[in-house]
């Protein structure tokens, strides 16, 4: 049996359904049990966390984890469904250190909060940026500008008059 079916066999209460993501086994899990599932997945030998993706569907937000095992040469995909008004899930940074920056990026661009993350701040956009750009309801018509304050940190505002040259 493939790795998603094995996970369902080991943790039947946490896995909602088993499917396929084009050619990789996919397991949809409950978001409250993510830490237990992560521990089991690490025990099964998946030591490489490739990517964490956040997708904004119209009525929900999905977070997708892609794993790979160097020893067993197998793939596994985990998907968790979060609600759109306040999406949050526990952080897996204690199992895979690369989740540190991957989760920060997902928080920055899609707006998912990861509980238990040591340093959940914006990483690609400056600190005071308003909104999460990869949401479908992000307003592209508001232009935000960045200036540098006294201590070298960024200040974001919608008024660019002290940066732009007047014509």
């Amino acid at each position: 049996m493939n790795s998603a079916e094995e996970l369902k066999y080991l943790l039947p209460a946490s896995v909602i359904s088993v499917g396929v993501q084009t050619n990789k086994p996919l397991a949809v899990i409950k978001k409250e049990d993510i830490l237990q599932v992560a521990e089991k997945v690490k025990e099964m030998g998946f030591d490489n966390l490739s990517v964490i993706t956040g997708v904004d569907r119209e009525d929900r937000i999905e977070v997708i984890y892609n794993f790979f095992s160097y020893k067993k040469k197998q793939n596994l995909v985990l998907k968790a469904i979060l609600d759109r008004t306040s999406p949050s899930i526990d952080s897996v940074v204690s199992f895979w250190k690369v989740a540190d920056w991957l989760e920060r990026e997902t928080y920055d661009l899609v707006g998912i909060k990861f509980n238990g993350h040591p340093n959940l701040k914006r990483i690609l956009l400056p600190e005071g940026w308003m909104g999460h750009p990869l949401r479908k309801d992000y307003d592209m018509s508001i232009e935000q500008f960045v200036t540098v304050g006294e201590d070298g940190e960024d200040i974001v505002s919608t008024d660019g008059s002290n940066l732009l040259r007047g014509e």
């Binding site: 993501q21 084009t22 050619n23 490739s50 990517v51 993706t53 892609n66």
Partner: peptide
């Protein structure tokens, strides 16, 4: 409709597109 994740060995490491 569907989704796919594809990884290759780029010169700098593992490059993947979802």
């Amino acid at each position: 409709a569907g989704e796919v994740y594809c990884r290759i060995e780029a010169p700098k490491g593992e490059l993947g597109f979802y």
